[in-house]
Design a protein around this nucleic acid. Structure first.
Length: 292
DNA sequence: CACTTGACCTGTCCGC
DNA sequence: TGCGGACAGGTCAAGT
């Protein structure tokens, strides 16, 4: 699923496409994806105007003028795709044509219609994702929001804080700690591997065994790979797409993720794929060594 | 508390 | 071509 850079890219796209639009109808296929009562939808969503779209960690928030918010988690395969009333505006042959011209499809969980007959589709093949309507003031009270760590790309997020956040996970593997959203927000499987390669740290290294210099390299690496990815529109490994249905380009620039069998860009050693923290994990076996 | 593992779903790919 | 198993960008609830 989308990690921080992908969710940030969707947020920016939605801010461009849907702010100011009025919702005229909503339709969903199962209670699992969108468990709100029809009365909530009728009273606080239909007729509301989109005020702004925000992101915290990997969670999207669409604020409405009713002081209610649509809170959305895309999990592994979620998509939020906006399709204009005249979808041909992209022109024949545009790379996202095949997706947007065929929505809704069997993965569509929720369809939101705006006053100009344009649509926002929430698609999710694996159905792990969810969308909920709740009062805007209640969003920070969600259990996830209570425990989630700081945003690593904020300029106020310092190396000192980074080190402190990881200190309470000193006995776990560094990759598991990086993926723990309560330590820092937004890192997922792709950027964990990319940042660990950048800092030359083996993913199974115990946090407490990592030198200050390497932790600093990791702090820099996390921020660099995620900033680069945002500038490239995120990573489209399988399902992820922008709010206009097009794909992200980060994986064309990835150093290790999905690059097993190809040479390490620094030393030429073949990248391998293994398992760490229960996840597929990519690394350079020469530069990322346990106990170093 | 810190830490690990399995469960939630559907689709795809790979080996037999 | 079919079938079984492993695996896929995330989080939770359980277990130790």
């Amino acid at each position: 699923m989308p990690e921080l850079p992908e969710v940030e890219t969707v947020k920016r796209g939605l801010n461009k496409f849907i702010v100011g639009r009025v919702i005229t109808s909503e339709k969903h296929d199962t209670e699992k994806g969108f468990p709100n009562a029809p009365a909530d939808v009728k009273n606080f969503m239909i007729g509301a105007k989109i005020r702004a779209v925000r992101r915290r960690a990997k969670v999207l928030m669409i604020d409405l003028t009713t002081d209610y918010t649509l809170v959305i988690h895309l999990k592994m395969t979620g998509q939020l795709v906006y399709v204009a009333a005249d979808a041909t505006r992209f022109g024949a042959g545009h790379p996202n044509d095949s997706l947007i011209n065929n929505l809704p499809d069997k993965s569509t969980r929720v369809t939101i219609t705006f006053e100009d007959d344009s649509h926002l589709y929430f698609n999710d093949q694996r159905k792990f994702g969810w969308m909920r309507l709740m009062p805007t003031v209640a969003v920070p009270e969600l259990p996830f929001m209570q425990k989630v760590g700081p945003e690593p790309l904020e300029s106020s997020f310092t190396f000192v804080e980074f080190k402190q956040r990881f200190a309470r996970r000193k006995n776990s593997a560094i990759k598991a700690a990086l993926l723990d959203q309560s330590v820092i927000a937004g890192v997922g499987n792709i950027y964990a591997d990319e940042a660990l390669w950048s800092a030359k740290i083996h993913p199974l290294t115990r946090v407490g065994d990592i030198s200050d210099a390497k932790m600093k390299a990791l702090y820099d690496g996390v921020r660099e790979v995620m900033n680069l990815s945002i500038s490239l529109g995120g990573s489209s490994s399988r399902n992820y797409v922008h709010a206009d249905g097009s794909k992200g380009r980060y994986l064309d620039f990835a150093k290790v993720f999905h690059r097993e069998g190809t040479p390490c860009p620094r030393c030429g050693t073949e990248i391998i794929k293994t398992r760490a923290a229960g996840r597929g994990t990519h690394l350079c076996p020469r530069e990322q060594v346990l106990g170093k």
